[in-house]
Design a binder for these strands. Structure first.
Length: 683
DNA sequence: AACTGCTGTCATGGC
DNA sequence: GCGCCATGACAGCAG
């Protein structure tokens, strides 16, 4: 329990939002104080607190070197001040004039967490008390012009809250926080006392703010880096900063040695009567905490645990909008989070009839948390969303029903309708026949139309047909089946789904009839005939079964002549059909091959033509060369008198020994005649 | 309406 | 003689 108190005090010291909300004037988010916001957020919050009613609060002067952000200061009304002004310039003066409590909470947060994490709760306690005392004292210095330090800062938070501290003692407090707790945490000013009686919760919060201020001032140096990080966070978007702070808080919680479970805390809170938290914080908790501290501590966890709900995220905006509805912290307004949700959200915290634990939504299960944090608008929206969802689901259900109906239609239609309705329903597993089977005109056991066992799908006879084409036709089994039920359904595994799977409602009936018409239309002539004559075999069976089995079937069945003739015709036509298909296929293949051959031959012909042309060209060239050579030789020849030889009268002739003779053409001609005659004689 | 392609069927012949 | 197969011819259908 002590641990719990310390934890409450330490964690709650960071928070004061509930008190502010109880006033109904300043609407500050719980989460805002719980997190580690950037200095700009603190500044904003300070400005918010600087509203009309803030002057009635206990004052918490700004530290000499407070954790202000160096960015441009904001006017309480949201006006941008001169960025060149010193950080503690005009704004601080205005704040002081308004008596606004300033809480460098980020440092407090960090310090508290650090202290608790290090197991030095006492230190945190003392620092809190010192901070409260110093804050109160400085408040007194600011408003009342000075006062005594609060005695026993860790004892009575209310005293520490309002206890004035001399301005000159502030630095001392900062230097020796633990000692200053006892020294400075003392009496409060009368004004603050009156204010405390008037707004007790606010006083607690103010005290807490003072505590935080002092603590932050105490840990200023040690958390300089931390503050810089916070400044970085302030420069980030809000969601990013919150993310960072959230992670920090989570880390803080993880760093603490708090063994209290959430359930225990909830039980503790719920067990307390109305406003019993004040009793806890004021009486039982030895640490300089307050009611709001405890509540805020819960809110701290609320932030930590419920930020995942995302409702708290945008509450910052609502908070900043709430005081005068004139200040907007975020440069980018989040319109998705109106102001009313904020009010709704905090309304339960101000409800006197509500237990303190009710606002500890962070300890509730996420769903409940979410619901609790939902505003009326959110609830309305959620309700509408739910209604829409329900309607959507209903629509989907309708669609599903339609789809299912259609599916049943298709399945049932695909399964076919037997002329006999006494099928068993185990054939549903055979519904996997594809419509292409019907398109093929083939029918079978698993065919689309189980019309008296007419039709089939011969692609997988071993599966779909009981006829074993290799070993013969199992007519006995077929007969047994037929004779037993007096039907021609021979396939127990066939889609014997003629029995209605369900009643056909209006549209489905039409669909079914239309599908049946299409099915009949897709039947071949033989199939229709077989169906009409109740032939107990499928066309595929009849066609493809071995002739011996077929003859055996004809002999064993008690078939009429018409049926036998039909079976033979079916078989003949079926085989002829297949033969015609093969023939056409072959013919087509032959045609294609012939075309291919023609193409090849044409290509070859073209090649030969080209070669012939080349050869002729070469021959002509050679002839021309020979002619030129001949002319050249004769141009150089001379007779005995030195005259040129006439090429028209003489010709050159090569002898067998390689010598070349000049012979008159007459002799050459006679010689050719003699050779030809010799050749003819030899032949 | 004619044309074309596909398919089923018949007739015929060969094996 | 029967069955199967191949093939030409014809008709119906669809594009």
């Amino acid at each position: 329990m002590k641990h719990l108190k310390r934890w409450w005090s330490a964690g709650g010291g960071l928070l004061h939002l509930t008190v502010l909300l109880s006033l109904g004037v300043l609407r500050v988010d719980l989460d805002f104080y719980l997190l580690l916001p950037p200095p700009t957020l603190l500044r904003d919050q300070l400005l918010l607190l600087g509203g009309p009613a803030s002057s009635a609060y206990a004052l918490s002067p700004l530290p000499a070197s407070g954790g202000w952000g160096s960015a441009g200061q904001l006017h309480p009304k949201g006006r941008e001040l001169d960025p060149a002004a010193p950080p503690e310039g005009q704004l601080l003066r205005e704040v002081r004039a308004l008596g606004v409590p300033f809480i460098p909470r980020t440092r407090v947060d960090a310090w508290l967490v650090h202290s608790v994490a290090a197991g030095d709760a006492d230190e945190a306690h003392g620092l809190l008390g010192a901070a409260a005392a110093s804050s109160a004292g400085e408040a007194g210095a600011s408003v009342d012009g000075g006062g005594q330090a609060v005695q026993g800062g860790g004892g009575d938070p209310r005293e520490a809250r309002s206890g004035p501290l001399g301005a000159g003692e502030e630095e001392k407090v900062l230097a020796e926080p633990t000692a200053q707790v006892r020294d400075t945490g003392g009496c409060a000013s009368e004004k603050n006392e009156v204010l405390r009686e008037k707004h007790e919760g606010v006083d607690h919060s103010s005290q807490h703010e003072e505590n935080e201020e002092r603590a932050s001032a105490q840990k200023e140096n040690s958390f300089q880096q931390n503050n810089e990080d916070e400044n970085k966070i302030a420069e980030k978007p809000d969601w990013e900063a919150e993310k960072s702070t959230e992670s920090r808080n989570e880390g803080h919680l993880n760093g603490t040695d708090i063994s209290l479970s959430l359930e225990d805390l909830l039980q503790l809170l719920s067990s307390q009567p109305e406003n019993s938290l004040e009793g806890i914080s004021l009486g039982d908790i030895p640490l300089p905490g307050s009611i709001s501290d405890g509540m805020n501590s819960s809110a701290h966890h609320h932030v930590t645990f419920s930020q995942a709900i995302s409702q708290d995220v945008n509450l910052h905006d609502a908070i900043l909008l709430s005081p005068n509805n004139t200040f907007i912290r975020e440069p980018v307004a989040k319109t998705s989070q109106p102001q009313e949700p904020f009010l709704q959200f905090h309304s339960h915290t101000t409800n006197p009839g509500q237990t303190p634990g009710t606002n500890l939504t962070g300890y509730l299960p996420p769903v409940d948390n979410h619901m609790r944090n939902l505003t009326s608008q959110d609830l309305d929206l959620n309700i509408f969303d739910e209604i829409d969802l329900m309607s959507l689901l209903a629509t989907e259900n309708d669609l599903d029903q339609i789809d299912i109906s259609q599916l049943f239609d298709e399945l049932d239609s695909e399964s076919g309708f037997s002329l006999d309705s006494s099928h068993n329903s185990t054939s549903v597993t055979k519904y996997n026949s594809s419509p292409s089977v019907c398109d093929e005109g083939a029918t079978g056991y698993s065919s689309n139309y189980d019309l008296g066992a007419v039709g089939g799908y011969y692609q997988e006879p071993s599966k779909l047909c009981h006829v074993d084409h290799d070993s013969g036709f199992h007519g006995d089994l077929t007969f047994q089946h037929i004779f037993h039920n007096h039907t021609y359904h021979l396939k127990p595994s066939a889609p014997e789904s003629t029995s209605e799977p369900f009643s056909w409602p209006g549209k489905s009936q039409k669909i079914r009839s239309r599908y049946l018409e299409d099915a009949d239309r897709n039947l071949s002539r033989d199939e229709r005939h077989a169906k009409a004559l109740h032939v107990p075999f499928s066309v595929d069976e009849i066609v493809h079964m071995p002739v011996d089995s077929f003859n055996s079937m004809l002999s064993r069945y008690y078939l009429t002549d018409l049926q036998v003739s039909l079976l033979r015709d079916i078989r003949r036509r079926g085989k002829n059909k297949v033969a015609a298909q093969n023939c056409r296929k072959r013919k087509l293949d032959i045609i294609l091959n012939l075309e291919y051959d023609v193409c090849n031959l044409q290509a070859k012909k073209e090649t030969l033509k080209r070669e012939r042309a080349q050869c002729n060209k070469a021959i002509n060239i050679m002839k021309q060369k020979l002619h030129d050579l001949y002319r050249d030789v004769f141009s150089r020849l001379r007779d005995d008198q030195g005259r040129p030889v006439n090429p028209n009268l003489y010709a050159l002739q090569c002898s067998h020994d390689g010598s070349i003779l000049i012979i008159p053409k007459e002799l050459v001609a006679s010689g050719h005649k003699k050779e030809t005659q010799k050749g003819k004689r030899k032949r």
